[in-house]
Design a protein around this nucleic acid. Sequence first.
DNA 1: TAATCTTTTCGAGAAATTATGAAGAAAAAG
DNA 2: CTTTTTCTTCATAATTTCTCGAAAAGATTA
Lengths: 226, 226
Amino acid sequence: MTRILLIDDEQRMLDLLTLYLKPHGYYCETASSGREALQKLNDQSFQLILLDIMMKDMNGFETCKHIRRNKNTPIIMVTARDQKQDILQGFRLGADDYITKPFDEDILLARMEVLIRRQEKRRTISTDGLDWNEENHQLLYKGSEINLTPKEFKLLGLLMQYPGRVFERDHLLELIWGHDSYTESRTIDSHVRNIRDKVRVFGFPIDGYLKTIWGVGYKWESTSNK
Amino acid sequence: MTRILLIDDEQRMLDLLTLYLKPHGYYCETASSGREALQKLNDQSFQLILLDIMMKDMNGFETCKHIRRNKNTPIIMVTARDQKQDILQGFRLGADDYITKPFDEDILLARMEVLIRRQEKRRTISTDGLDWNEENHQLLYKGSEINLTPKEFKLLGLLMQYPGRVFERDHLLELIWGHDSYTESRTIDSHVRNIRDKVRVFGFPIDGYLKTIWGVGYKWESTSNK
DNA sequence: TAATCTTTTCGAGAAATTATGAAGAAAAAG
DNA sequence: CTTTTTCTTCATAATTTCTCGAAAAGATTA
């Protein structure tokens, strides 16, 4: 799930954008001030930021500058039509793109995709808010990091990569441990347990996904019947 | 000198753009057909492509698609105003941005700069008060200089350059020491240790950023949960 | 329901990996 | 050439992860 941070001090606008974006598979987190946005950016991770320039408290420019001190998450500015100086100023402060209000939904989506696509060359697998990312060696649930050990991480990644497919324990051993391992196949069970425990703590409905196939092995459920 | 490739079948437009861009320090090469453009792209390297969509022979879309087969040089499409379908199609084929004719010179320049800036390896990186500057080989924290040795400096810079990404020790060795080095991969650990020690003395919360990924390597944390 | 088989749970020891401290080798500076 | 700095390696301490057995719980079959 691609996570977007919407920053605007008008609640109406936040609602509207959320409504726009949700059906296209984006999860939107909202912030109604620069301060709140920086807070959320500190706690969670996002693939894109939509930032309204016209805000009362800390304005969009200030916010943009602050964000760029620590992150290079792509930023699309939202401006009123033809505020050329604003647009230029935004670019100077590190914004990646802008759209003018009122904006065309399709164009916005296209621009968003360009920016997201560019940084998502890495391999990620996502389900229901759970993102497994190989390059970052990270498992995120709704933007928060869940700490896994190397074996746990590989095991989960493998299962998620082939949703619906059942893996026998010996097969998992071969794929993750390698063919020259003397490890007992029951060791898998321990790792599965640890994964379940760790992920469950964060509120992800893991039992609806990581399933035991009795007498066979394990699989990652593709159709989430939680 | 930043090299731009202009593609348009109207000579007048090519001249106009060249005239616009030259004073801003861009070198412009021109092509008046898709074929010619592909030829030039094959022989020379460019930092950016400006591509007119409305061309007689091989049109802009075709050209865009061909270019993307081999290169990911940023492409800005030039379209007539409000050809929404054209714009969306361009994005689908891998364009990075578009401008509508007649365009504003400053906005064009700003958009170009965004795309070019992103391509360039950054000479300075800043996080949470820590500034890494390649040009003067300095690491500053809140203005005070932290003295690093060459290896330490390069290593830190590389990690900061790609926040979030995990590097294996052998990969770091290859990137910094070069492929023909006989250095043990554990040597990395020593350098990491020295970096941590030196930076910590100055009060920077290094342990929240320079992370050990157990069993894998090291990374610079992008979501700073200190 | 009983018998049997499989999985889950738990915990402790084993194994693997990283951090640390220190010293010698190599390189650079004086 | 000498001194200083940087780089590399190694031993060992500290930490984290992995593994496996045994008991408990759960599923299946007769």
